[in-house]
Computed example of a mutant assay.
Amino acid sequence: MMKIEGIAAFVAVAEAGSISEAARRLRLSKSVVSERLAEMERTLGATLLHRTTRKLTLTEDGIAFLERATRIVREIEDAASDMAERRGTLAGPLRIAAPVTFGRMHLGPALYPFLAEHPDIELSLDLDDRRVDPASDGYDAIVRHGAIADSRLVAWKLAKSRRVLTASPDYLARNGTPRSLAELDGHRGIFYTNRGVADWRFQGPDGPVLIRARLGLRVNNGDMIRDAALAGLGIALLPAFIAGPAISAGLLTAIDVGFHPDDEFIYMAHPEGRHPSAKLRAIADHLKKAFGDPPYWEP
């Protein structure tokens, strides 16, 4: 008879890409996960995974089995959560991905009191600035900053996110303060690598305007972009949730060029077609209230 523990081990390995990482997520030993996989393959009479010393890949049978196996595991997790919720308890595993800087500065402090109030929730929070796919990477939801564009995701807005052109007083004293979009052309820019291009996008009276400053630095982390601006390396277009404290302290200066960057949001998104659990909805509602409208980090 097929055991749910074996199905869960197979799904975890397929999502994690390795037995060791799956064992870490399941909080089991590698030997136990390997044993459950082997038993699953014996029960099915099929090889689900190709194992080599360098990598692990799904066989054709594994690919065919994965979709239904994932659905089975999710249904059982949701059923267990629903039973807990019927007893007035938010409980069970939850896996969320979020950007590093926002997670450290705002998401973590907002989540800690919620988790203390609901100790039966088993939250795994992965902080990573790369863009992850919640469906294929095995997340219940992701927290992101930016425009809401991915049609495969159902997004819940948590807070507005205003971006601010900013630089250190020292940089502006040496290079002058730009007062128009045209004056930005001669300045050095500090850009966020994960946006893909080194430019600034503003909303003008006739539509979007793209400004390409001289490249001073490209980096894939918001903390380092702020620190580079503090060091006087150039102008950065930073979210207020990163730049706000430094602007309020006078360490960075907000620059007004007469136009605003595109509107963006802090949002939580889950894969389309997946019924969000009560605990996920409860976390989203809690975060929305914790961040406020307008959000508390506005300078």
Rank of each mutant, 00 (worst) to 15 (best):
H270F: 07
M268E: 04
A173N: 02
R214M: 07
F10E: 10
W297G: 08
F202I: 03
T89R: 08
A84R: 06
P99E: 08
D129K: 06
G250C: 06
R144N: 02
V164R: 10
I142H: 01
G196A: 05
I7C: 00
D82M: 11
V164E: 14
F102V: 14
A46H: 03
I121D: 04
A91N: 12
D128M: 13
A231G: 05
A155P: 09
T57E: 13
I76C: 13
L181C: 00
D82K: 01
S20F: 15
H118Q: 07
H106S: 13
V132H: 01
Y171S: 02
S277G: 14
L280C: 06
S161L: 04
A14K: 07
R281W: 05
R179Y: 03
A149R: 12
A22C: 13
A246D: 05
I19Y: 01
P299T: 07
G45V: 12
R86I: 14
T166D: 05
A282Y: 12
A16R: 15
E77A: 08
E85G: 02
R74Y: 01
A64V: 13
E272D: 05
A110V: 10
N221R: 15
I19Q: 12
L66F: 02
I142G: 05
R281Q: 14
G216F: 08
A173F: 00
L287V: 15
F114C: 05
L252W: 10
P109K: 08
E41S: 08
S151I: 09
V197Y: 08
D227V: 04
G234M: 11
D133Q: 13
A278V: 05
V154N: 12
H286L: 06
G207F: 05
E298C: 09
A290Q: 11
A79Q: 15
P205I: 12
P208E: 03
G292D: 12
I148K: 09
L230D: 13
L233H: 14
H50L: 10
Q203N: 11
D82Y: 08
L49M: 00
L125S: 13
D120F: 11
A9L: 04
A98C: 11
I121R: 04
A79M: 11
D129G: 10
A213Y: 06
R162A: 05
A167W: 11
I96E: 03
L238F: 00
L165Y: 05
L252Y: 09
A243D: 08
P245A: 07
A213V: 05
W156M: 09
W200S: 02
V164Y: 14
